[in-house]
């Protein structure tokens, strides 16, 4: 089949069935817009939690009067762990100095201190990919078993909460995106199915005249792709408008909106996503052609 002819047939059908196609485009646009908003939310949560490893560290407080050998043993054990990126020994004198700098406005708190109440400590930073509650918990428990470690602190609950939010958001987001994508496919499927039924007689004539399956399918696939593409394009316009006209303006008065990251490059994929989903819906609607 000459490809331009398939496009011509598709164009005629799109024009002829303009209302059903228009409504389908609007439905697809709404579906993809919701999908894009969910994806934007998941993306932002992910981006925020991705910054966490840079700030995350574990503190190992040491018992007093450790020998040099014992200290080196602890530092070696930590340094050799696959999850650990950096180890830093903080003598209690340095820790107190730092504390005094931090609390210089409340210097009275340190008046009357006869001896340093702090412990010597070791700060360990984990590798970016190793920052998760399981690894932190394992390392804490292994280190607690070593003679000379007095206490381990790493914000266990905070890390677990952040990690749960990350995993949960991803999972719920994925489920929503799959459901919405299924919805878009279903809209394209229904539209093409209706058009396919309306043209049943015409298709039968094609078959009797010797048309191959691709001759029959091509215009419907093109039509499905067009509907999906237009829906995607509208949703892109929708989300860009939402970002530039609403989020950016709100960010001037509400700081929360300032932190929203908008992945422009990825959002440009929306029309392409619509096109692909439209083609899939159309292909399912046509199904198997029998002679």
């Amino acid at each position: 089949m000459a490809v331009p002819y398939a496009f011509r047939l598709a164009a005629q059908s799109i024009f002829h069935e303009k209302w059903i196609n228009f409504l389908s485009i609007l439905t697809i646009a709404s579906g993809l817009l919701i999908t894009a908003l969910i994806a934007l939310f998941v993306y932002n949560v992910d981006a925020t939690t991705r910054k966490l490893p840079e700030k995350f560290s574990m503190m190992f407080y040491l018992k007093d009067n450790l020998s040099r050998q014992e200290l080196e043993n602890i530092l070696n054990t930590l340094g050799k762990d696959d999850a650990v990126e950096m180890v830093k020994y903080i003598p209690k004198g340095e820790a107190l100095k730092e504390l005094k700098t931090m609390l210089k406005d409340a210097a009275y708190m340190f008046e009357g201190l006869e001896e340093n109440p702090l412990h010597n400590s070791i700060e360990a930073k984990l590798k970016r990919e190793a920052v998760c509650p399981e690894t932190a918990k394992r390392l804490a428990s292994e280190m607690r078993a070593i003679e000379g470690i007095d206490e381990v602190e790493y914000g266990e609950k905070f890390l677990s909460s952040i990690y749960s939010i990350k995993v949960g958001t991803r999972a719920i987001g994925t489920v929503f995106i799959i459901i919405m994508s299924g919805g878009v496919i279903f809209v394209c499927y229904s539209t093409v199915k209706i058009l396919f039924y309306r043209k049943k007689e015409e298709i039968e004539t094609y078959k009797l005249l010797g048309a191959k399956k691709r001759f029959i399918r091509a215009p419907f696939i093109i039509e499905g792709a067009f509907i999906g593409f237009c829906g995607g394009l509208l949703s892109l316009i929708g989300i860009l408008s939402l970002y530039y006209l609403v989020f950016l303006r709100l960010s001037l008065s509400i700081p929360f909106f300032k932190g929203i990251i908008f992945p422009t490059n990825i959002s440009l994929l929306l029309p392409l996503t619509g096109l692909l989903l439209g083609m899939v819906g159309a292909a399912i609607a046509i199904g198997r052609i029998r002679y």
Partner: peptide, 24 residues
Amino acid sequence: KESSIPLLRRNIGFVFQDFRLLNN
């Protein structure tokens, strides 16, 4: 084979009782 049916039909010209013309 089913895939050969269109090829066979291309060797045949039909004049149907109900014409089967496309009105559009």
